[in-house]
Write a protein that binds this DNA or RNA. Structure first.
Length: 256
DNA sequence: ATGGCTACGATCCGTAGA
């Protein structure tokens, strides 16, 4: 079973690239972030025609999350319990014996800003939410855009980024608090190329210079981590015309 | 290099992303 996450930066603008990638990469479960469209405008028909059932929670212009699967996602839950601020950032569903949580974590803008404080409060609420999910579901996947580069090796220029947004110690501590629940970073279960990133700025030739960050992740609970046979970043969609600024991440699981 | 690019919803510029 192949599980993927991709911040598409507008699901309607990226629909052609998304359909091409689904056909080529053939993931069984896909978590999408920054769909940026209200539910009534979600391209459900096109994705169903491509063989994917859809669960989605969106809003106009910002945020928005979706889960695509070969079968109907069940027990769909939107949001984080006790953190009802209306931003569409979390969607959970049960698929193929696993509980899948799709997350679009706040950006935080700048260390010390209101949005940074929001990010840290949101992460604390996410941790509690995932603790409750783990108590109910042994097979848990948390996939999405976490907007945290966990370690210096996940950053193109760590010295320039030290203490800055996505790399600050409180953000990294919030990330490690998720791992401490009993989740594994699927990408780091395996040897990986140096300078592996999932996001590159659109500007200043960042992709050409590989000036990126690894901020999109797939977390697996222990029973799923034991089944994981591979995890990789798919650079191809980032190199297409009119790309998202993020690349997809894929994880393969052996049969239970 | 404090810009540079892209999407959005509003107009032809501001907000946000990371």
């Amino acid at each position: 079973m192949r599980i993927a996450t991709w911040n598409v930066n507008s699901v309607r603008v990226r629909l052609v690239q998304l359909l091409e990638w689904l056909a080529r990469a053939a993931p069984d479960i896909v978590c999408l972030q920054e769909t940026k469209c209200e539910d009534a405008r979600f391209p459900r028909a096109e994705l169903e025609a491509a063989g994917y059932r859809c669960a989605f929670a969106g809003e106009r212009a910002y945020n928005g999350v979706a889960i695509l699967a070969r079968e109907d996602p069940a027990d769909i839950q939107e949001g984080i319990g006790g953190f009802a601020d209306g931003q569409k950032r979390v969607l959970a569903a049960s698929v193929a014996g696993a509980r899948v949580v799709c997350v679009y974590c706040p950006n935080g803008q700048a260390v010390g800003s209101d949005k940074y404080r929001y990010k840290l409060a949101w992460y604390a609420a996410l941790k509690d939410h995932l603790a409750a999910e783990l108590a109910r579901h042994r097979a848990l996947v948390v996939a999405g855009d976490f907007n945290v580069a966990p370690e210096d090796r996940d950053v193109h220029d760590p010295a320039a980024r030290e203490g800055e947004i996505h790399c600050s110690a409180p953000e990294r501590a919030a990330w490690r608090a998720l791992l401490a629940l009993g989740l594994e970073d699927a990408f780091r279960l395996f040897p990986q190329p140096e300078k592996s990133y999932t996001w590159w700025d659109y500007r200043a030739g960042a992709l050409r210079r590989n000036a990126g960050l690894r901020i999109d992740h797939i977390l697996l609970s222990a029973p799923l981590a034991r089944r994981c046979t591979a995890c990789s970043i798919d650079l191809a969609p980032r190199k297409l015309a009119r790309p998202s600024d993020h690349a997809p991440v894929l994880a393969d699981l052996a049969a239970a």
